[in-house]
Design a protein around this nucleic acid. Sequence first.
DNA 1: GTTGTTTGCCAACGCTTGTTGGCTTAACTG
DNA 2: CAGTTAAGCCAACAAGCGTTGGCAAACAAC
Lengths: 190, 190
Amino acid sequence: MAFTSRSEQTRAAILAAARHRFATDGFERTTIRAIAADAGIDPSMVMRYYGSKDGLFAAAADLDLHLPALATVPREKLGETLVRHWVERWEGGLSDELLIVLLRSATTNERAAEQLRTVFGAQVAKALASVVDDPAEAPTRAGLVSTQMLGLALCRHVLRLPPVVALDVDTLIATVSETVQRYLTGPLTS
Amino acid sequence: MAFTSRSEQTRAAILAAARHRFATDGFERTTIRAIAADAGIDPSMVMRYYGSKDGLFAAAADLDLHLPALATVPREKLGETLVRHWVERWEGGLSDELLIVLLRSATTNERAAEQLRTVFGAQVAKALASVVDDPAEAPTRAGLVSTQMLGLALCRHVLRLPPVVALDVDTLIATVSETVQRYLTGPLTS
DNA sequence: GTTGTTTGCCAACGCTTGTTGGCTTAACTG
DNA sequence: CAGTTAAGCCAACAAGCGTTGGCAAACAAC
């Protein structure tokens, strides 16, 4: 490795262990001691490197959705593009536990909730601003899209509702894409 | 009141306080001591009446969706009927904190998750079995409906994403109904 | 009015939590 | 090789947790 000083190495080990624990247990049930044990070091090391449990969580939950650029996507493919990106990110396995970290903790931890609000209020709305008809509608459409995307992730990867888990990826993408496409380009008024 | 013995009264007070705490803080962050303080009694009373924190949660989260009978609903109104019922139950305010109790705790508490799976796997699928074309598809369609319904509740009432909170009820029902209608009666294959 | 039963509070136990300070060893610097 | 710095561990702290057993007061029954 290029420049992994000894401290950087354990620092990274702590972060990896923290992400895993936060992802499977949520914020409250995760203990510093368990993280330290997973990382093979002493609990006090965690404090030295990250200051506090809150500080560690902030570092572990620092997230960027990396949404694809939508400007060049044909209008009728917007929904599918977003949903495919979303689903594949989740199906990608353990390489990316960041989303489940946030989702699991956001229902009880205000810091996590605030970050989810930021991610979905800013990142998604911004990605959409350039492609929706009326830029003023971007936040609303981003919100509607969020309900479907987060609901899907919640049911499939957190709650693990059996019929939702059983859906094959292609059917899932095809079915949900239509919904998202309508939220992006359909009428908004009642 | 008709037959409220002294003990029934405090029993109910404990349950009400517990529901409120579980609804706002989730299972892990809620303490027996806080519930007892809210109910104006001693923590040990909670144990006497409900055995343990788990027992209290089970009693506080005992939920019935009371889904409307769908057999007589015109086929093209199924989505709207379900969504309207769902949204109005949530908008009903504090009279019914049961759903938010479950939703807030289900991401970190396996007991709560299991109950949500049961409610949405059994109650919803059962309500749908009589109205969908192919009964074998009922669980899958119930699952898809769940992703949208739970996602909506999550974004609007738990995470409180601003644009989702800002949506007026009529627009919300109209927009989401179309999605649910399609999940109920549209094609399923990719 | 005395007896037995419920209803409640108090005090404490045992445990786990996040967090801290000091000590020991290893690594680098001159 | 001597000396400074970093990395790590150990032990302990104060606080909070769920939970328990025993004791005082209120009530009910006879």
